[in-house]
């Protein structure tokens, strides 16, 4: 099977968030960037598991400048076969989806994976936009994926208070949530071979993004916690009703 995993770059989960002077861009000094965890832990590892069982290849696709190559190399070290980097800054979900889908249209992939969302803009839009442009089925928030035949999969999808089990034929687009696979740490052999795996640079298509960032702000500071005597839960109940007005 020819599998494709779309990966993006995000600030580390524990990063302290601040913005530049006019609040339009993230202040990147002191921030460690990582591969978006949903892309890495669930989408990429699941694709590698399928390739290990069914053969074929796992390609990774990324939109970003060459300074992001270290993230792509990590995906190769974890076990991807080869990589493609579309050489332009990622500015919006619609732009990233357009660039990726335009690349995918020139190739034939059986399954196109994304993470369920990125941990920076938390939009969950790229998968659906790509599926629409490619005119393929899109299954979101998949927690299980079983290949049952060469061109057929059974997928479990998370939804409010439960799961749905879906049968789908390849090709399709899928977004991966927790449960799909277990995180893999690259080993020394993987890191060494990653250096010689192909990382192809792709020229971007012309495109004008459909949204623009006006400004960022930090949420208002929280008031200091009010401690309640553990022996006086009547007081907490009263505060929840009269002060917080939530019960």
């Amino acid at each position: 099977m020819k599998l494709l995993v779309c990966i993006s770059k995000t600030p580390d989960t524990t990063a302290k968030i601040a913005f530049n002077g006019d609040n339009t861009k993230l202040e990147t000094a002191g921030i460690t960037f990582i591969m978006n965890p949903y892309d890495e832990w669930y989408a990429l590892v699941k694709a590698i598991e399928i390739q290990e069982k069914w053969g074929g290849s796992v390609s990774v696709l990324h939109v970003g400048p060459s300074e992001n190559d270290s993230i792509i190399r990590k995906a190769l070290a974890i076990g991807a076969t080869d990589a493609y980097r579309i050489d332009t800054e990622a500015v919006s979900a619609d732009q990233v989806a357009f660039q990726m889908a335009s690349f995918i249209q020139q190739h034939a992939f059986d399954i196109i994976f994304t993470g369920k969302e990125t941990i920076d803009y938390n939009g969950a839009e790229v998968g659906g936009r790509m599926a629409a442009q490619l005119n393929l089925p899109f299954i979101s928030f998949a927690s299980h994926l079983d290949i049952v035949a060469e061109n057929e999969a059974v997928v479990k999808r998370d939804m409010e208070g439960g799961t749905e089990t879906i049968q789908v034929n390849t090709p399709f687009v899928i977004s991966a949530a927790k449960g799909m696979a277990e995180q893999r740490i690259p080993n020394m052999k993987g890191i060494m071979t990653a250096k010689s795996k192909p990382l192809n640079v792709v020229t971007p298509q012309k495109y004008s993004p459909k949204i623009s960032i006006v400004s960022h702000e930090l949420p208002p500071a929280k008031k200091a916690v009010q401690y309640i005597d553990p022996e006086n839960m009547a007081e907490l109940a009263r505060l929840l009703r009269e002060e917080a007005k939530v019960i």
Binding site: P11, T13, A15, I17, F19, I119, D120, Y121, N122, S208, P209, K210, I211, S212, I213, V214, S215, H216, E217, L218, P219
Partner: peptide, 12 residues
Amino acid sequence: YSSKALVNIEIN
């Protein structure tokens, strides 16, 4: 950023 900040986005 997982609720660590807010953003205002213009739709063009």
